[in-house]
Design a protein around this nucleic acid. Structure first.
Lengths: 186, 186
DNA sequence: TCTAGATCACATCATATCTGTGACATAGCT
DNA sequence: AGCTATGTCACAGATATGATGTGATCTAGA
């Protein structure tokens, strides 16, 4: 079974025809390490789904320091939702940390698909709710937890990340310095 | 004096006002190693001029082998002229081999500039002629010279290239294998 | 059949980048 | 005032990636 089908069916069951119809709205691309899929300033018209590989979405603050919003691993969705939904220029970058194989759906195709297949509306609504909860928890964690606690939480939730991406990026995600992160693991 | 002014004045003299007017049609960008300035499939609307850095324009043949059309070093112009002039999707990629600082002029601005400032028409006409001659010579060289002869010619004309870009790219430019190139230097 | 050059496999080297760690600075808490 | 958590700076060693050279073979064309 196609991994996207498996992914969607974790939330809503699909017939073969439905999946074929949905899948027809996606296109696939390969990108290599260092390539961007979203750049600051552009209006993002695609939502990506990671088949294989690893990406980061990030921006630079006024001191030129990098902050990571999200990593994208296998079976994750990634885009700049603000730009994608509001049709405004993006404030962020998304690029590949490894060679990647991605599926994407354009804004228009996603609109069409949701109106024509009500199930997908439900799918995305659910995804969106869970995404919102995750963001909220991250904010809470940033407010109330120490660096060590945030480190432990991340390590517990996504141990693979620590094997896969450079520690300085984990640090930029947790909001601590590279050196402090290194000392947290002691 | 701005390097672009120096570059243009090697062909046509300019007043301060003229250069300021010309310069107003250009924009500057920085790109880092691995970033694309042109990708296959897009209609290229910019012509780039290299302030600092190094780029390659290239494509892949049906065997997935990379072939290099042109390198871009300081004071060189680079774009996909076919796409730029004919407004058709590009068949090539151009990306940065080093961090780069570039100037670019858009198609429309170039059109405006040439109609409004006749000198620039002369400038580009001359550039274009010389570019054409260079291309023709490259074809001749590919047809009649051995790999060793092509290697020697390139080494004579652009010795800096050999210091600056990986040998496998020199090979992809000369149309020989990496290994053969390595043995040519003996 | 000789030659120029390709392809494959491998070893060595160079470079970039990642990672840990000491020394020290600083801001907020108690 | 002094403690704690964290940041910043500098440096050194570890690791990974890519660049380079070279032998062994293979092939197409003069």
């Amino acid at each position: 079974m196609h991994p996207l089908r498996k992914h969607i069916e974790e939330i809503i069951p699909l017939t073969d025809e439905e999946f074929a119809y949905i899948f027809g709205h996606f296109q696939s691309i390969k990108k290599r390490k260092h390539q961007y899929i979203v750049q600051e300033g552009e209006v993002v018209s695609k939502e990506f789904w990671v088949i294989t590989g690893c990406l980061k979405s990030y921006f630079f603050d006024h001191n030129g320091k990098e902050h990571i919003l999200q990593f994208g691993l296998e079976n994750w969705w990634i885009t700049d939702y603000e730009s994608f939904v509001k049709r405004t220029p993006s404030k962020i970058f998304i690029d590949c940390l490894e060679d990647c194989e991605l599926l994407y759906i354009t804004y228009d195709d996603r609109e069409k698909l949701t109106t024509q297949l009500h199930k997908m509306e439900r799918f995305w609504a659910k995804k969106s709710k869970y995404g919102r909860i995750a963001l909220q928890n991250r904010i809470l964690s940033l407010l109330k937890n120490s660096a060590k606690e945030r480190y432990d939480l991340l390590l517990e939730q996504y141990p693979q990340l620590f094997q896969r991406v450079p520690k300085k990026l984990i640090a930029a995600y947790l909001g601590v310095s590279r050196e402090t992160l290194s000392r947290l693991g002691e």
